[in-house]
Amino acid sequence: MKKCAAESLGTFWLVLGGCGSAVFAAQAGGDSNPLGLGYLGVSLAFGVAVATAAFAFGPVSGGHFNPAVSFGLWIAGRFPGRHLPAYVVAQVVGGLLAGALMWVIVTANPDFLSFGGAGTFATNGFGNFSPGGYPMEVAFLAEAVLTAVFLCVILAVTRPRATAGAAPLAIGAALALIHMISIPLTNTSVNPARSTAVAAFVGESAAYMPMHQLWLFWLAPCVGALAGALVYRYVNSERAEAA
């Protein structure tokens, strides 16, 4: 129960810190944007959020905060499969709590609901709901490849002989870079709990990502996590044999 609570809290902080920055602060100040974080700032916010969550809650639960990461760690033999369902539920619940808090805050502004379009309320999407108008195939490829690389980084920096204490910083840097690459493509998910956390509150709408696109942001990260775990296991075994 303590591990699940830590996963919920960590995912809550990741969604609130990352998506909250995108919703509340990315364009603060209007078109001239004198106060806004902008594209780079939101990318860094996601990295800082996951790094601080990992420092705070990682010692308790391992610091997954992402169903695709938990799945990939299980495939890689780093995480017991019997705990996978509970972790996924805890992560989704934590994300939804953050999404609910953000929705309560943002809808207090009567002007918010008059706007819409790709990426509104930090939603992910493809086609008309991609910030850059990228099609489903590109969105799937980007989410899968970037999740695979993310999983490889996580596995590398958490291996037994890795530098102690450096893992959260490396993972945070990797997530920030992933956002720098893919915000224009899908608004960046690589985390099904993060996507669900915001999509659940906008539902089916012509103004926001429709719920029927959410499947891609579960399937592609999980496919990527599977590929990343298998690639890492193959490369790691090759190194072990060479040594």
Rank of each mutant, 00 (worst) to 15 (best):
H64I: 06
P67G: 07
A68S: 13
S70V: 08
S70T: 10
F71R: 02
G72I: 13
W74R: 00
A76L: 15
A76E: 14
G77F: 09
R78K: 14
F79K: 08
F79W: 06
P80K: 02
G81A: 14
H83W: 14
P85D: 02
P85Q: 00
A86P: 12
Y87P: 14
V89W: 01
A90F: 04
Q91M: 04
V92P: 08
V93L: 08
G95P: 05
L97T: 00
A98P: 13
L101G: 13
V104F: 13
N109C: 08
N109T: 03
P110F: 08
D111Y: 05
A118M: 10
T120W: 12
F121S: 13
G125N: 07
G125Q: 05
F126K: 00
F129E: 03
F129M: 13
G132N: 07
P135G: 07
P135M: 09
M136V: 08
F140H: 03
F140I: 02
F140A: 09
A142R: 03
E143N: 11
E143A: 06
V145P: 09
V145W: 06
L146R: 00
T147Q: 04
T147E: 03
F150L: 15
L151D: 02
C152R: 10
I154H: 11
I154G: 12
I154F: 08
L155W: 07
L155C: 13
L155F: 09
A156R: 01
A156K: 01
R159L: 12
R159S: 11
R159C: 10
R161C: 15
R161T: 15
R161H: 08
A162D: 09
T163V: 15
A164T: 08
A167K: 00
P168Y: 02
L169G: 10
L169F: 13
A170G: 15
I171K: 02
I171V: 14
G172S: 05
G172M: 03
G172K: 00
A173S: 11
